[in-house]
Design a protein around this nucleic acid. Structure first.
Lengths: 373, 373, 373
DNA sequence: ACCGTTCTAGAATATTCGCGT
DNA sequence: TACGCGAATATTCTAGAACGG
């Protein structure tokens, strides 16, 4: 409708030289008489505002400094599309919509937005890292507990081992003593009563089963146990190849190791197993065992008689302390019957008579060593 | 100097009703005659700009169309510190220094401040995380050391266990030999062949060497093994001083510990070694040993004869190898005296006669099993 | 527009020699008549300020006192783009834009740059930390595997140990049985003296105490040790419930576990303890023990006579069940020969009269197993 | 929702002052 | 001293913003 460009066009009949702009000659007259015809006001500044709003710019320069000479306000405006005789162009003179503000604000806003976004990203990352860190710390604590646990267990085990070792030692002492003493075992008529209270073993309830088993199957159990025991030692020792330190320095390509762990089963060397470890096969009749343990008591004590017997024995068969790998059995029996002693010379060192004459009498399975006595 | 307030004060002789503001009556005359006296221009808008710059606000005429009806521009400005007769107050009317600029600068500054603060926060967090990370890394290293330590201890222990096991084995062999010798204190003519197959130990190929060694050097080996075994237990136990937990709380000054680990060699107490551990000195003549193990079989079996006798023996008390939980002692004594043997049949398998008649002779604690022989 | 360059160009008709600069001839006339045509002032210094603002520099008169001698102010300014006849170049003479604004913008730009840089730093740090974290996580997993491995090994070992312990127990039982059967040992006339040196155990200084204790309290110690040993095995094994891996996947709600660890005390099953483990009660008179260990040697050797013979033997030297490290062999032999018994009194306490006839007379402590010899 | 009106502020340049070298 | 420049203000033009049609 009443655009400022319209006014300018109409008013510009008496416009500036080149027809590229229009000049407001008398500002007082212009505002009081011209403006009201086009607008609802007679305010020159409002009109100028409109001009600016539509892209008109004031023409500033007056070459040769003639501007200030007259006590007058010089007002001339121009627009790229404002030309004398170019009424059609006025259509293209559009109102400006918040150009710079938007740009700048948008600019800064964008910058800030970017920064803020990145900040938020970093913050999130931080939080995430912290969370992971905390989680790992907890896991780490668990590891510490595990290690502490392991250490405790280790120590317990070490204690056990020490006990076992010492017991072994003591036991050996005792056995040796026993051995050395055994030879002189005779009837011991004068044993005091209090003495009988000493040597016993108390077997707790939960060990009863095993003790029964052992007593039941006896030597076979021991044999088998030792067999697997000795067989099992090696794998455990040989498995000690993977070391932790190196796995730290070298990332060690992820966790495929996990799959290795379960595969760490002990390889049973078939060749080394002569007897199947069949502990379920009782060697004693069950009825015997049942009778043996028929008491319903929670715990049981294993009563052992150690000592026995009497001098009444032997004196025949003087085959001496000789030890021989291929001694005839008769000889053996004679030997021991005569001597009636533990042949410690075997374990110490001693002059031995080797009588290999009858070694061939036994067809040994390859790998079988037969101890004759 | 020439502030707009000054002008206004002088010009306000003809001011508005309440003296709180001043009115520009004739804008044409004002700008062309008054303004140049105070400023270097005759531009009313410039003056108004200055007024605004100094905090003056235009008084909006609300009297409906009053102002407009006269076709005149109504110009009246007021300022909190502008009063008629208050010339001294003009001093306090200060130029606004770039309101928006200030705002923006302030804005940006604030934004920057915020950003900076957050940045600093992030940086601190980062540093903190890094520090924690590093600390954890140290702890982690300590864990590694712990594990390494544990592994070493474990291995030591395993070594001990192996020694104990082998010793146990050897010892058992020895003892069994002793035992097997013991029981044949009499003649055992009727031993069945199948009986001989029972008590043997299978020795895997890789244990052969050691077994040979043990059998070769016999008692000296055991002695020496025990000697070192007992000597070695202490260091392992005493080494248990460093605890993990504390090393976590106290950074414990870096990784010099690593160097300690290898230096953890067992100090052999010379004083406690009476005998040089010379396992290479055979106690048995080599030829004997060689003969003993001359078979080239991969594995070997240690054949042990464990008793065997046969009723043919003694002729009295035919319960013989019978085992009984409540056998009369006399019987027992007789039995053993007669037989004078280790009743391996107990541990093997064998039919047993139960003679519980004398069970009551012993006042057994509940849960006590007495083995009579 | 109103550039000072324009003024200069127009005014420079009467300019300096080479046309590269312009000279203000009469400063009075220039400021009062020329300047007002272009500017709103007649202040020469303001004009000069403007010149400076647009990059003009004053041409310093070097002709000594030439200029000065005439008592005149010499004013000549030049600009790289100011040339006579080069009106078009004036367009390129720009005002030095916004010193302050530039600064501020530069400031903000710099600030932004700094912020961006720091952001990048933080991002990098973040990435780095994350990477390290991930690496550590992998290592951590390895540790877990290690621990799991260790636990498995530990368990295997514990198994072995258990087996060994039980075997030890069983073996001891067997050996004792064996020992009790061995009683029929008689003289071994042909043993060489050197033989006596063999079977001994060297006891290091630090083990002396324990050895003394064992020898002192003898069988009771073994009994008690075994008792606690067997009792202690179970808890350790049963405690193996908590697994590490799962605790990693499940945060497992913080560290309350810590409190569980100390509470892991071994539950002593009262039922399985028949005898209080009172190892402090000596069974041998102290004077005897003191005598036994009265040697001040750092280490001591436990001398065991194994086999011992000398036919000269028995029936003499009734020194009875006394045991003594410095006993003459003969005495010993006699002793044992006479008594013909396993001197369990040594390991128990006291000289004992073995009178099996009255065995039943013994009021057995509940849970007592009686060893007869 | 767009546009006009008005007041005020932003922005660039201009003017002046004064400091430091 | 005097030149160049920073800083504050002035002047001018343009834009922002509130309000109303």
């Amino acid at each position: 409708s009443h655009k400022p460009g319209e006014l300018a066009y109409c008013y510009s009949s008496n416009t500036s030289k080149d027809g590229q702009s229009f000049e407001i000659v008398n500002e007082g007259t212009f505002s009081k008489e011209v403006l009201p015809k086009y607008f609802k006001h007679n305010n020159l500044s409002s009109f100028i505002r409109q001009l600016n709003m539509y892209g008109f710019r004031k023409v500033v320069a007056l070459q040769n400094g003639q501007a200030n000479q007259e006590n007058k306000v010089y007002l001339e405006f121009q627009h790229p599309l404002f030309k004398r005789g170019g009424a059609c162009l006025l259509e293209n003179i559009k109102r400006k919509v918040s150009t710079r503000t938007n740009e700048k604000v948008r600019n800064y806003s964008q910058e800030f937005q970017k920064i803020m976004t990145e900040m938020q990203d970093l913050r999130n990352k931080q939080t995430n890292t912290d969370a992971k860190f905390e989680k790992m710390k907890r896991d780490y604590t668990n590891i510490l507990l595990e290690i502490t646990n392991l250490k405790k267990k280790y120590w317990d085990q070490q204690q056990l081992l020490t006990q076992v070792s010492i017991l072994q030692f003591v036991f050996e002492v005792m056995t040796l003593k026993c051995g050395s003493y055994c030879r002189s075992l005779q009837l011991l008529p004068g044993a005091s009563d209090s003495e009988y209270e000493r040597p016993y073993f108390h077997i707790p309830e939960e060990k009863k089963e095993e003790a029964m088993h052992i007593l039941k199957d006896g030597y076979a159990v021991i044999e088998n146990k030792y067999k697997s025991l000795l067989d099992n030692i090696s794998p455990v020792l040989e498995d000690d190849s993977n070391n932790v330190i190196s796995s730290v320095d070298q990332p060690s390509g992820d966790d495929e190791k996990v799959s290795k762990v379960p595969s760490q089963d002990i390889p049973m060397n078939e060749d080394s197993l002569t007897f199947p470890l069949d502990l379920n096969t009782p060697f004693l009749e069950d009825k015997f065992i049942e009778e043996l343990f028929e008491q319903k008591s929670k715990d049981m004590s294993l009563f052992l008689e150690s000592s026995q017997n009497s001098d009444s024995v032997l004196t025949e068969n003087k085959s001496d302390t000789n030890y021989n790998t291929s001694m005839s059995r008769d000889k053996m029996h004679i030997h021991y019957t005569d001597e009636n002693m533990v042949d410690w010379s075997l374990l110490s060192k001693k002059e031995v008579d080797y009588d290999l004459d009858h070694a061939s009498e036994v067809s040994c399975h390859p790998g079988t060593v037969i101890f004759y006595h």
